[in-house]
């Protein structure tokens, strides 16, 4: 229970909340302040949702997983020590939520590693829509059409900036697997974008 006016929720007028820095918000949220946690949510939801959307290629599922990520963050706030930026901690947690969800659905990573299914790209089928310049195809859509494993590594490495050893740790695979998936993603994207 906060004892001072400045530290308590009672004194947190909306102006005060807006001025709070991220660390202040985190500390308040760690004390159970849902208003502070809401501000953390609003500051970070765009990045978390973008990650979930790109990793799942499913807007509805991405919304559910984004909520799950914040729910997990709320329950684990006490374990956040401030060693990394809160947004970094939250982002990593969101990645784990998405990967755990995938595992729970039986789409195990190992099953995806050596798959070379080109079906999502509709290979061999003529398409008038694709008649125009393939280079104009939106990269976002091309990423969404990748197989799960290749898409995950491409998003984590090429967009989010994780290194292969970090991806390997998060996915429970070898560094070589991460590199192989990235290569596969790039090759598939080239086929789509240059079609």
């Amino acid at each position: 229970m906060p004892s001072s006016r400045d530290g308590g929720v009672i004194s947190a007028t909306f102006q005060g909340l807006r001025r709070m820095q991220m660390n202040d918000l985190v500390r308040a949220a760690q004390r159970g302040d849902t208003a502070a946690f809401e501000q953390l949510y609003r500051d970070n939801i765009g990045r978390v949702y973008a990650l979930c959307l790109r990793m799942t290629a499913d807007p509805g599922r991405a919304e559910e997983l984004s909520q799950d990520a914040f729910l997990r963050a709320w329950s684990k706030l006490s374990s956040y020590r401030g060693d990394a930026a809160f947004s970094t901690w939250l982002h990593r947690l969101a990645v784990n939520v998405v990967l755990a969800d995938r595992r729970s659905q039986g789409k195990r990573w190992a099953k995806l590693v050596m798959t070379d299914d080109m079906a999502p790209f509709g290979n061999g089928e003529s398409s008038s829509a694709a008649e125009g310049s393939a280079l104009e195809m939106d990269l976002e859509q091309a990423i969404a059409s990748l197989p799960d494993g290749a898409r995950t590594v491409f998003v984590l490495h090429a967009i989010e900036g994780y290194q292969h050893d970090e991806i390997a740790e998060m996915t429970g695979t070898a560094v070589g697997t991460s590199k192989a998936q990235l290569h596969r993603a790039r090759r598939l994207l080239r086929e789509v974008l240059e079609r």
Binding site: E38, I45, G46, A50, Q67, I159
Partner: peptide, 16 residues
Amino acid sequence: MPREIKPSRDLWADLE
């Protein structure tokens, strides 16, 4: 590519 994408609806009410 944008690092942030807004979901189609505000998720806070459900989360709260």
